[in-house]
Design a protein around this nucleic acid. Structure first.
Lengths: 242, 242
DNA sequence: CGGGGGCTTGATGAGACTCAAGAGCGGTGG
DNA sequence: CCACCGCTCTTGAGTCTCATCAAGCCCCCG
């Protein structure tokens, strides 16, 4: 994991610049944002925001993994987003958090005071534009996830999850593709709308059938990406690596 | 249903102004938009856009109901959005449709040529701002829907659906609340990630238990809204009428 | 009256959940 | 160095919800 030192970190050497909310900013605009930003690190399991809390900031994920989730009174919970580096947290124009945000790993966020951020967005079209793009992309991804939750089998859900991870985290190794899963089995079950037992069983089944190779519980190798694509049940289009 | 005559319809008497993409516009900005808009009507079942199609326009729903859905190669499908009057279709900055859009009832849309619309948004912050709001609201709603798809029981799903409808379509009648369901049983099943048979059975069960009263298949009366809230399994907060 | 579309009802079965044990693994301390 | 613990993960047996398959009903329309 990339180590961020909050005291020396500056926008000019920021690892997430190309994809983040500030990607289109001019030097001047960056200075504006720079004045109102501050870094903060959370340890695994720590809560960043709880649903219903007043939201005084927005933020970008700099490093680590966080989850966005919602839970019901009786304890059932559903993850509604997985936040990886460059993803954006919070929403201008809303004062109360609608979801829980939790650090899954060591997590560093680049915060902006919300009020100040809102002032910046209304005066710098570049941020506003990028915000629309980010939110629309997220909406697309979320809708795709609805298909998974509503209609896919457990096996297809696991395969789809692996694909999502591969797209953002995988590294090519000749024919095959390697990655380290960003979530525990438990968090995976929350994401996929399954139980941890079902996740475990289906991972075992995919391994038995040669779709994936496991090394420990987190390191996964995909020998044949097309095979995984088939298992995910997606249409072949729109399901390629970036 | 409100009848729209495309030849005489003007922005100044538009029924969806208060909530639509143009709600914040000044008279001048409206003129800009007015120049590039055109109305179009679709009959029930008609396809507005198919996934993969080039998208040359964006649009607002003026009257009627449309659905946003995604389907799998083997025919399974999941509705990912229900579009009611004032809702927005399409996204600036994306040329290919990611989902199917289908008219469920007689449907009238207010179209804008996408290229032209993009020019307008980049020059009029009011449209851009409203667009961010609309998209963020939709993202919230979509995420809430994920909880439903991933974790709720069939009965809770139906109750939640009725609540959503009540919020946007219901009319108070003393203690109770009346509405006409915007979707067929079939479309409801697509929305809720269920089969039509399960929808039918659960509607029957809720009726048997006095949670709702049916008149025909579409007209529903909710005698006690709190009862329905309980059945939906939501936390009591965030689940009130607007 | 016949037919079709939308909806309901019934019987059966499969897939995922629940509950319950046990395995693997890293850390800690005697 | 090894026994013990706590954690995550896996595996197994039984159960239940919801999907599937198959009729049948209701209402409108020709």
């Amino acid at each position: 994991m990339i180590k961020i030192d909050s005291t020396t970190q500056t926008c000019s050497n920021c690892p997430i610049r190309p994809r983040a909310i500030c990607s289109r900013c001019t030097g001047e605009e960056l200075d504006e944002l720079g004045k109102i930003k501050y870094y903060k690190t959370y340890s695994p399991g720590a809560s960043v925001v709880l649903m219903g809390d007043p939201m005084t900031f927005v933020a970008s994920v700099v490093s680590g993994v966080a989850t966005l989730s919602r839970s019901m009174a009786d304890g059932r919970m559903q993850m509604v987003g997985m936040l990886l580096p460059s993803d954006f947290i919070g929403r201008p124009g809303r004062d109360i958090a609608s979801f829980d945000v939790t650090a899954v790993s060591e997590l560093t966020l680049c915060h902006f005071h919300k009020r100040a951020f809102e002032k910046v967005t209304s005066s710098t079209p570049h941020v506003q534009e990028r915000l629309v793009e980010i939110v629309l992309d997220e909406l697309d991804a979320t809708r795709e996830w609805m298909l998974l939750l509503g209609r896919k089998t457990a096996r297809e859900k696991i395969a789809s999850f692996l694909l999502i991870c591969a797209r953002r985290l995988g590294t090519q190794e000749g024919e095959s593709l390697q990655m380290s899963l960003p979530l525990t089995r438990d968090a995976m079950s929350d994401y996929l709308g399954l139980t941890i037992e079902t996740v475990s069983r289906q991972m075992a089944a995919l391994k038995r059938d040669g779709v994936l190779v496991l090394e420990g519980t987190r390191k996964v190798t995909i020998p044949d990406l097309n095979r995984l694509l088939d298992e995910a049940g997606d249409d072949s289009d729109g399901a390629t690596l970036p």
